[in-house]
Simulated assay, not measured.
Amino acid sequence: MEIRPASNFDDVRTMVGPKKPDANVCWCLSYRIPSKQHLALRGPERGEFVRGLCKQEPAPGVLAYDGDDVVGWAAIAPRADTTFARNGKIPHIDDLPVWSLWCVRVRPGFRKHGIVAPLIAGAVDFARDHGAPAVEAYPVDNGNERVNLTLAYAGTRKMFEKAGFEKAADTTAVLDGFPRIIMRRSL
């Protein structure tokens, strides 16, 4: 498993883009940009916006590769550059300039092959390499209940605990009926 910065637009499109170019899928933008801008971008404009992000430094996240196949995606950025900076349901714990890790996705056909752990570790390393003092994630606290795959992008408490994160705070946010919590890993 190799983890690389998400600077290859075609591979990012494989992981988070739509099957039909004119579809209004997330492209992992819903927490990255203000809601008004997110809703204004339509169809192919969404992909072009992400293409621009892939050319920036730092890249908009990391990708996992199994040989030549892109198999995983993790969105990570400084919290101050995301909508989590202003999210009233997910509070700030302190003034530390943390990075937010809000989306972890594994391609169908590659799930349950041990990709999540190196993908999260790679995202943490990416943030560390860019000066992050800590990384926060906002997974669901689902106990042992099954999470709907459509909404599994946030991850689970157990997944982040295995990656060395600790619960830092509760939130008032809910996803798929499960409370979201703040998990943090100091770097």
Rank of each mutant, 00 (worst) to 15 (best):
E2C: 10
I3F: 07
R4Y: 09
N8E: 11
R13I: 05
T14S: 07
P18D: 08
D22K: 09
A23P: 15
W27G: 03
I33W: 00
P34S: 12
K36H: 10
L39D: 15
A40S: 15
G47E: 05
E48G: 04
F49V: 01
C54E: 10
K55I: 10
Q56P: 12
A59K: 06
L63Y: 09
D66P: 07
D68P: 01
D68W: 01
V71T: 02
V71M: 02
I76R: 03
K89D: 08
K89I: 03
I90V: 15
P91V: 09
D95H: 09
V98R: 00
W99V: 06
L101C: 15
V106H: 03
P108T: 13
K112F: 04
H113C: 13
H113G: 09
H113D: 08
I115Y: 13
A121I: 07
R128C: 11
D129L: 14
H130Q: 02
G131P: 09
V135G: 13
N144C: 00
L149G: 11
A152C: 13
T156W: 08
R157K: 15
M159R: 02
M159V: 05
M159L: 08
K162G: 04
F165V: 00
F165I: 00
K167R: 14
A169P: 04
T171Q: 04
T172R: 04
I181G: 03
I182K: 06
I182S: 05
S186I: 12
